[in-house]
Computed example of a mutant assay.
Amino acid sequence: MRNVPDSLDPTVVAEIDARLAGVQAAHGVAVPWAIESGSRAWGFPSPDSDYDCRFVYVRQPDAYLSLWPERDVIETPLDAVFDVNGWDLGKAVRLAVNGNATVGEWLRSPIVYSGDEGFRDRALALLAAVADRGRIGRHHLHVALRQQERQTTLKRFFYVLRPATTLRWLREHPDSALPPMDLPTLVQETSVPTRVRDAVTDLIEVKAVTRELGTGSAPDVLERFVADELDRAAAFDDLPPRGPSDEARARADDFFRGELARLTR
């Protein structure tokens, strides 16, 4: 599957496609999932936003039997436009089972360069079965708090606003631990007040045409919204820490072995 909006620069997209093909050829890996992350996929790009392609890859089975395993990350040259790198499937699954929310976000990215829809659906089913809402909530809470400490520009406020809205989504969807990746969908799927919804839309529209938003403050209505959501989500820090269950580990092993067999036939 592929879902690349017309708003993306076709020349840049072609280079990303070329890099992904080069990774597969140079490293002998399969890439079942390659998406855009960062502000473009999060729903609030600027005219000068770079491209953050992320992918999941699988090596040949023998590579996982070596006493000297290869790195579980593949990177391509980083520059002002391109940030293209990926994780080995084993790394991605281990992190996801241990509460890292990044893999779930990648699987729900609205921008897909190339993807095996069956792989995505099976991976989402795994995460739905093993994801720990407490760890996912704690992840987003601490992302927001770290970004809040670093916030020096209105542009960076979005990096607090998105996880705060994700925490709202988790509170309103108590049976799910897999929130949408992009801010507009998060807002749409939550009962945020109309004034908050309108302020988010207005700020996204300004960012879309402005290279630098400057050091001004966010609208008061959004500052209050963020503060309230982070205060409500503080309870995630009170949950007792726990590792993945034996059942979750077994499910993860089964998923990994199954995908390794499918992708390396």
Rank of each mutant, 00 (worst) to 15 (best):
residue 176 S to A: 08
residue 89 L to E: 04
residue 24 Q to T: 12
residue 165 T to N: 03
residue 144 A to T: 07
residue 7 S to C: 10
residue 81 V to W: 06
residue 195 R to D: 13
residue 90 G to L: 10
residue 5 P to E: 03
residue 184 P to Q: 09
residue 160 V to R: 03
residue 97 V to S: 02
residue 7 S to I: 09
residue 10 P to F: 02
residue 149 E to C: 11
residue 128 A to D: 08
residue 159 Y to M: 10
residue 49 S to K: 04
residue 78 L to C: 05
residue 120 R to L: 06
residue 149 E to S: 14
residue 116 D to H: 08
residue 250 A to N: 10
residue 39 S to T: 12
residue 87 W to Y: 09
residue 193 P to D: 14
residue 48 D to Y: 03
residue 80 A to F: 08
residue 189 E to Y: 03
residue 256 F to M: 13
residue 200 V to A: 04
residue 250 A to H: 13
residue 110 P to N: 02
residue 85 N to L: 03
residue 223 E to W: 07
residue 236 F to A: 08
residue 75 E to M: 07
residue 89 L to Q: 03
residue 105 E to M: 07
residue 157 F to I: 11
residue 225 F to N: 05
residue 189 E to N: 03
residue 251 R to S: 14
residue 48 D to K: 05
residue 179 P to V: 01
residue 157 F to N: 09
residue 138 R to S: 11
residue 53 C to G: 14
residue 11 T to G: 15
residue 79 D to M: 02
residue 153 T to S: 15
residue 107 L to I: 01
residue 40 R to K: 09
residue 34 A to Y: 09
residue 61 P to Y: 08
residue 244 P to H: 10
residue 194 T to K: 08
residue 83 D to M: 02
residue 43 G to N: 01
residue 125 A to Y: 05
residue 47 P to G: 11
residue 58 V to L: 14
residue 175 D to A: 15
residue 54 R to M: 12
residue 119 F to W: 10
residue 40 R to S: 14
residue 119 F to K: 04
residue 32 P to E: 09
residue 244 P to G: 11
residue 251 R to L: 15
residue 156 R to A: 14
residue 180 P to K: 07
residue 98 N to K: 09
residue 19 R to S: 11
residue 253 D to S: 15
residue 213 L to F: 02
residue 137 G to L: 02
residue 90 G to H: 10
residue 180 P to S: 00
residue 72 D to W: 06
residue 200 V to I: 09
residue 78 L to F: 12
residue 185 T to I: 10
residue 264 T to P: 11
residue 201 T to H: 15
residue 63 A to L: 03
residue 2 R to M: 04
residue 175 D to G: 15
residue 167 L to H: 00
residue 229 E to D: 08
residue 229 E to Q: 15
residue 215 T to W: 05
residue 115 G to I: 02
residue 136 I to E: 04
residue 69 P to V: 06
residue 41 A to S: 14
residue 114 S to W: 07
residue 36 E to H: 06
residue 119 F to Y: 15
residue 89 L to G: 02
residue 230 L to V: 06
residue 12 V to M: 03
residue 220 D to Y: 08
residue 237 D to M: 00
residue 257 R to K: 14
residue 19 R to I: 04
residue 228 D to Q: 09
residue 161 L to Q: 05
residue 152 T to E: 13
residue 77 P to H: 08
residue 147 Q to C: 11
residue 116 D to A: 04
residue 263 L to F: 12
residue 126 L to H: 07
residue 264 T to H: 14
